[in-house]
Design a protein around this nucleic acid. Structure first.
Lengths: 202, 202
DNA sequence: TTTTGTTTTGACCAACTGGTCAAACTCACG
DNA sequence: CGTGAGTTTGACCAGTTGGTCAAAACAAAA
């Protein structure tokens, strides 16, 4: 009888599989990826991989779930008690940093949304919407109090998402255009300037 | 011997196929789409579809080529003789309008880039880079002359791409968060404000 | 109507896909 | 050492995929 948690081997192999799957799914999308590909990347045989996860779907679901938390965290941290402008700027900086550190997660997410969010559409219109609405409220209060400039708060948030994730999702294009310059060296300053000028009250 | 151009039927069917393929490819990506799916959407049998295009790849390539022109046009139109700030704002407005009018093309492109641009990587680092470099030059001159504020010109362009395409590529997410409000009603004003504040010289 | 080129299709194929299974192997522990 | 649970694998399967092909159906000019 197994009364203990997962074996050392189970722990290691599940991690190895998720790591490999993230690589594969994030660059080929769900349907574009094959179990064989993931198994090879993980250094396992296909049946062995399917001994640790019941199906391709299950691996993908596990990755998405894990990723959604990482994705939402920076927004959650925006503090109603802090200095408004600095809070927004800090949020933007965190988001950009995450794009740099976890580009594969960003692309996994982008792939899912692009295809109509078949697997996380529900979460978007419940959990995500709830969190965003809460922060929209906060931003609106800040604007009404004159702490930051009045702009459409939804679009403010969308703009932050799109600007920061662009560097992960469209990495190939960014690098093709910029040549050998590192986009992440100059991006933080540009984006901070942008939001400072947009949000500093007149 | 066929000395004339394409038949009336050929013209119509090729168009119908491309239209159907755009629908399918843009929502499922290349590998996620099947020839059968496209054929069904086009109202043709699979062999009949393959009578008009030699392969799945060929249809995809044809779409990408056609799309790239549409995608680059608004940037080409940015006029060195015009008023700097208004030229940039007009470019942004054109780009956003295209996102609204051709969301499928935008998603087709996003899919391709996300997967590492295997089919258009070459074009990006030649044609696209050349065009961008030319406009970067123009923007830099405008900045040095004090007509628009000094910001990193590459990131300025990336920000325009990401902000405008976001509304096409992440449409599902935007709508999930905004509920039944139409994002395209309020987006143009927000984005214009953003670039006006960013670029108006101090 | 005949003839000739164009268009459409059902039947088919080989490669690949996600997933199963029984048998073999490995390993910690008594 | 032995034994039982945990781990790994080769062989296999049914469904799907992109693509082919010969024959049939159709259109239009003579």
């Amino acid at each position: 009888m197994n009364t203990q948690g997962p074996t050392r081997i189970q722990k290691k192999n599940r991690a190895v599989i998720l790591e490999a799957a993230l690589d594969v799914f994030s660059t080929h999308g769900f349907r574009g990826s094959t179990v064989d590909q993931i198994a090879k990347e993980a250094g396992l045989s296909k049946p062995n991989l399917l001994y640790y996860f019941p199906s391709k779907e299950a691996i993908h679901a596990s990755l998405l779930e894990q990723m959604l938390d990482t994705w939402l965290d920076p927004l959650r941290e925006m503090d109603p008690e802090g200095d408004p402008l600095e809070e927004v700027l800090a949020y933007v900086a965190r988001k950009l940093e995450i794009s740099r550190t976890y580009p594969r997660e960003s692309r996994l997410f982008a792939n899912e949304i692009l295809q109509g969010a078949p697997r996380i559409g529900e979460v978007l219109s419940t959990d995500l919407k709830a969190l965003v609405d809460e922060k929209i409220d906060l931003l609106t209060r800040w604007m009404k109090a004159g702490h930051i400039a009045q702009v459409h708060p939804y679009h403010l948030i969308f703009s932050i998402w799109s600007l920061t994730q662009h560097y992960a999702d469209f990495d190939v294009q960014v690098r093709a255009v910029m040549g050998d310059q590192d986009p992440f060296q100059s991006a933080p300053e540009f984006i901070e300037t942008l939001y400072r000028r947009l949000l500093t009250p007149t």
